[in-house]
């Protein structure tokens, strides 16, 4: 069987009619974590519940109740952790899901409460007015870009930013629109550092993935090395000329006292006016010698000169 035939159109590996939603190593690691979490929950909750329950019941009954309670809670935690890779996807797409639900439910309630032309009118107003007013439209677009960028960055982190052993990715925190594009704060998990994002053209790859012009990464503050800021540029907000305020400090009624020197006659301003003088080698110029240290390259092809950073 060829490899491609194992793949369903959705990119899930499809073996023996079963659809693998979570890849095997990830699932295994999550299952191990879930088992540990189950036993820890069982122990802690069971002990606590048993102690509390034995205040009211016979100690043996209380102990049994504690174990049952602990097992139930542990099972819930187990299920949550095992399903977390899937739940996480829902969490990541929560704004879109909420928005989609709001649109669907909004539309149906609107259709029920008003006649067709009324609901069409309301929809036209709700959509048309922000679309017509440029600042509102730009704001909305900026927020949409923020949502998009969070997904794109997540994709990049999963695809080519090195992760730690557990496969946990950097945590994408807030995204905010800026005049030039977006600014995203990211919390790095253990095993990562700013260096990982800086090394060999990672930022250029990020820019490509974010459909942006440029991406810049830097620390977000002096306090936490893990908190970094990613600036994504997709617009040029600095295209206009900025007028200097210095002339405003000058009062209006200043006497013009600029002396334009009349002493300079317009001579020698063109090539024929300047004689062709032979180059006389000055006697004291040092002879052109071969460099003593031939290992130092004068200039490498890309213009990089190591002595610039010496």
């Amino acid at each position: 069987m060829s490899k491609s035939s194992q793949r369903s159109p959705f990119g899930w590996s499809n073996r023996g009619g079963q659809v693998t939603v979570i890849e095997a190593p990830v699932a295994r690691s999550y299952r191990r974590r879930a088992v540990i979490a189950f036993w820890v929950t069982l122990g802690v909750v069971g002990l606590l519940a048993a102690m509390v329950a034995s205040e009211y019941l016979h100690p043996i009954l209380g102990g049994l109740l504690g174990v049952v309670l602990g097992a139930v809670l542990g099972a819930v935690v187990f299920a949550l952790i095992v399903a977390w890779p899937v739940l996480r996807v829902f969490w990541h797409w929560l704004p879109e899901i909420v928005f989609g639900l709001a649109v669907v439910y909004g539309w149906t309630t609107l259709m029920e409460s008003t006649p067709l032309w009324g609901s069409l009118l309301i929809v036209a107003l709700v959509v048309g007015v922000p679309a017509a007013i440029a600042p509102v439209r730009r704001r909305v677009m900026a927020w949409i870009w923020c949502l998009i960028v969070r997904h794109r960055l997540r994709l990049c982190f999963a695809a080519f930013i090195a992760t730690n052993r557990h496969g946990s990715l950097p945590l994408i925190l807030l995204a905010r629109p800026t005049p030039a594009g977006e600014r995203v704060w990211v919390w790095l998990r253990p095993g990562l550092s700013l260096r990982d994002l800086e090394q060999d053209d990672q930022v250029q790859k990020l820019a490509v993935a974010c459909w942006a012009n440029e991406v810049r990464v830097m620390r977000a503050g002096r306090k936490y090395a893990a908190l970094i800021r990613i600036d994504i540029t997709r617009r040029e907000p600095l295209a206009h000329t900025v007028v200097s305020p210095l002339p405003d400090y000058v009062p209006r009624d200043v006497p013009a006292n600029a002396p334009t020197s009349p002493g300079m006659p317009p001579v020698g301003l063109d090539l024929p006016d300047v004689p062709d003088v032979p180059v006389s080698a000055p006697t004291d110029t040092p002879r052109q010698r071969k460099p003593r240290n031939p290992t130092t390259p004068t200039a490498s092809p890309n213009g990089f000169d190591p002595s610039d950073y010496a």
Binding site: A180, S244, P245, L246, P247, V250, V254, A256, A258
Partner: peptide
């Protein structure tokens, strides 16, 4: 300490001359 993208303010030659004359005075 982090590079900041800025657009420098601009003085036209007339502006510079005005400020310079006042400063000279």
């Amino acid at each position: 300490g982090i590079p900041n993208r800025v657009k420098a303010a601009y003085m036209t030659d007339a502006d510079i001359i005005r400020v310079a004359d006042y400063a000279t005075w």
